[in-house]
C-alpha cells in the first residue's frame, strides 16, 4: 500500500488537466502506452516531430468524432483529454521526447464495445491523417506495427 502511495507521489502527472473531465485515479506510467518506443530519432523525424504528431492526432480525432461508422463511440468522450493523451502516446512510441500519462489500453477502452470493424476504421482515419501530413508510407506502417498488437486490449472489451 505504501509502495502504491509513494508511486502516486512520484508520478506527478495529473490524472486530468484543467479543462478536462475527471477520471478515476490510476498510476501513470509509460508502460500504459502499450508499446515499446522506437530507438533513435528516425521515426520522430518521419512524423515531423511533436508538431507533426500533434497535427496527425488532431486530424485523426477530428475525423473520428465526425465519422458515420465510429463517431458514436467517441461522442461521449472528453475530446480535449483524448487528444492530449494520444499525442503523448504517439510521441512516446515514436521516441519524440514525451512521457505518457494516460491510462492503459484495456482500462481506457473498457465497455466501449469496440469491434474489429471499428478498429480498422480508426486505422484508416489515422492513415488519412498521416497521408495529409505527408508521412512516408513505410514509416506509417512501421508505426502501425506498434499499434496493431493493442487490438487485444481494444476490441471486444
Amino acid at each position: 500500500m505504501s509502495l502504491i502511495l509513494s508511486l502516486l507521489l512520484l508520478q506527478a502527472a495529473p490524472h486530468a488537466m484543467p479543462g478536462e473531465a475527471t477520471v478515476d485515479p490510476y498510476v501513470a506510467s509509460n508502460a500504459n502506452a502499450g508499446a515499446t518506443p522506437f530507438t533513435g530519432d528516425a521515426m520522430a523525424r518521419a512524423f515531423h516531430g511533436q508538431e507533426g504528431i500533434g497535427r496527425v492526432v488532431d486530424g485523426m480525432v477530428t475525423r473520428a468524432y465526425a465519422d458515420p461508422v465510429i463517431g458514436e463511440i467517441f461522442t461521449s468522450h472528453d475530446k480535449i483529454r483524448l487528444k492530449r493523451t494520444l499525442v503523448e502516446q504517439f510521441c512516446y512510441i515514436l521516441n519524440a521526447g514525451c512521457s505518457y500519462s494516460g491510462r492503459d489500453m484495456a482500462s481506457s477502452h473498457k465497455d466501449l464495445g469496440v469491434q474489429r470493424k471499428d478498429m480498422n476504421r480508426l486505422v484508416e482515419l489515422l492513415q488519412q491523417a498521416m497521408r495529409e501530413e505527408k508521412i512516408d508510407f513505410q514509416a506509417q506502417n512501421r508505426f502501425l506495427s506498434k499499434l496493431a498488437p493493442m487490438h487485444h486490449d481494444v476490441v471486444g472489451q
Binding site: Q115, R116, K117, V123, E124
Partner: peptide, 8 residues
C-alpha cells in the same frame, strides 16, 4: 451483423 470493414 455488420458487413464490410476489412483493411484495404
Amino acid at each position: 451483423l455488420r458487413n464490410g470493414g476489412k483493411l484495404l
